[in-house]
């Protein structure tokens, strides 16, 4: 129905279109272009309660995403959660007395770790630990405390 040259050109265009679509998905839709997991360093932090934090949740400094959670473990002896954070290699000047808190993006949004840089002159290295941590705020606890204090206030 077609001569073979036209057929080959059409099929070539078809395959090229497929590759272009995959390229668009990779670069424009997924995190492949913005985020390279190689070359980063891992620091850990211990939290009493991590709330809804998950592996791959973002790690931010001053609201800027600098890495992500690479692993979450439970320490059997101290009963704390051990959170490993993979920080991109470019952000290697976080002081050793940096503190970590777990916040929620918006009221119902996902939870993330926010790092607050300290004033130390030494920087966090691969395998370092963030010692100052603040646990996740669990909404149910806050509401419970609020109701409790309201009830107490009502008695007076």
């Amino acid at each position: 129905m077609h001569n073979s040259k036209t057929v080959e050109i059409l099929v070539g265009l078809f395959v090229a279109l497929g590759i272009a679509a995959l390229f668009m998905l990779a670069m424009k839709v997924s995190n492949l272009s913005t985020f390279s997991s190689e070359g980063g360093y891992v620091v850990t932090a211990r939290f009493e309660n991590i709330g809804g934090l998950k592996v791959r949740s973002p790690v931010t400094v001053a609201g800027v995403r600098v890495g992500r959670i690479s692993d979450i473990n439970f320490d059997n002896t101290t009963y704390e959660a051990v959170v490993s954070m993979s920080i991109e290699a470019g952000y290697n000047t976080l002081p050793t007395d940096t503190s970590a808190s777990i916040f929620t993006a918006g009221l119902l949004g996902e939870q993330y770790v926010s790092l607050e840089p300290g004033g130390d002159e030494k920087y966090l290295q691969q395998g370092g630990e963030v010692r100052l941590t603040q646990s996740a705020i669990v909404l149910e606890q806050v509401i419970g405390q609020f109701l409790y204090s309201q009830a107490e206030g009502g008695d007076k």
């Binding site: 998905l25 424009k28 997924s30 995190n31 913005t34 791959r56 995403r65």
Partner: peptide, 11 residues
């Protein structure tokens, strides 16, 4: 979209 879609996992 870029923050949530993972190349290996999703695509």
């Amino acid at each position: 979209m870029q923050a949530k879609v993972d190349f290996g996992e999703d695509i």
